[in-house]
């Protein structure tokens, strides 16, 4: 039950993009087509879940015992960068077309603040709850957050595909209408606030 709550909270209530406003760059950049945005979502899911796992291990096994917690940001970035490199290799090998479509946004997952954000959020939750927010909690939270990211980006991509064929005023064409759409989506997701305490 606890994990289900964490998961739903991460996907809907505290949606990383639409409620916490992290990871907006790929959210706007790779949301032109549903297919590529879903691929991006999968890549982010993989990186985020593993990053939650490994950063938890790194923090609790290495940084905390040695009392060098202040290095957490650097260590997490190291973890994330290596993971992204790995994902890049795997995607290039298994799906060259997805690799082409994601383009520069794939290495940019490294600097996706959502991934680093979730590692730091997990760490803070662990400190606040005095260690009760454990390894599984972190991984579920990371996975849920990534699913939330995928949900948001796929929804936006779906809307954008329809916007392409809509008669919109000249001055709203391109990114202005996308920003407005993203803002409306954020307001819609505000409806989930307070669902889980």
């Amino acid at each position: 039950m606890e994990f289900i709550l964490i998961f739903i909270s991460a996907v809907l209530v505290n949606n990383i993009v639409l409620a916490k406003f992290l990871g907006v760059c790929p959210f706007l950049g790779v949301s032109k087509k549903v297919e590529t945005s879903f691929g991006m979502g999968m890549a982010v899911t993989f990186v985020m879940t593993l990053a939650s796992l490994i950063s938890y291990v790194v923090y609790n096994m290495i940084l905390a015992p040695l009392e060098i917690e202040y290095l957490s940001t650097i260590a997490f970035i190291l973890v994330i960068a290596s993971l992204v490199q790995l994902v890049e290799m795997v995607i290039q090998k298994t799906s060259p077309s997805l690799y082409q479509a994601l383009g520069v946004y794939l290495p940019l997952i490294t600097t996706n603040c959502a991934v680093l954000g979730i590692a730091l959020i997990n760490m803070n939750k662990g400190i606040q709850t005095d260690g009760a927010f454990g390894l599984l909690h972190s991984v579920v939270n990371g996975f849920g957050t990534a699913v939330g990211f995928t949900l948001a980006i796929v929804l936006l991509a779906g809307i954008r595909e329809h916007i392409e064929f809509s008669p919109i005023p000249k001055y709203f064409k391109g990114y202005p209408i996308v920003l407005i759409t993203a803002g409306l989506m954020a307001i819609a997701f505000l409806g989930f606030a307070g669902m889980i305490k």
Binding site: V58, L63, L66, L71, I74, L78, L86
Partner: peptide
């Protein structure tokens, strides 16, 4: 400690990659 731990992490990830 900090130099060793970060350096060690980098080494491990580097070998993995």
């Amino acid at each position: 400690y900090s130099a060793l731990s970060i350096g060690g992490l980098g080494l491990v990830f580097g070998i993995g990659l």
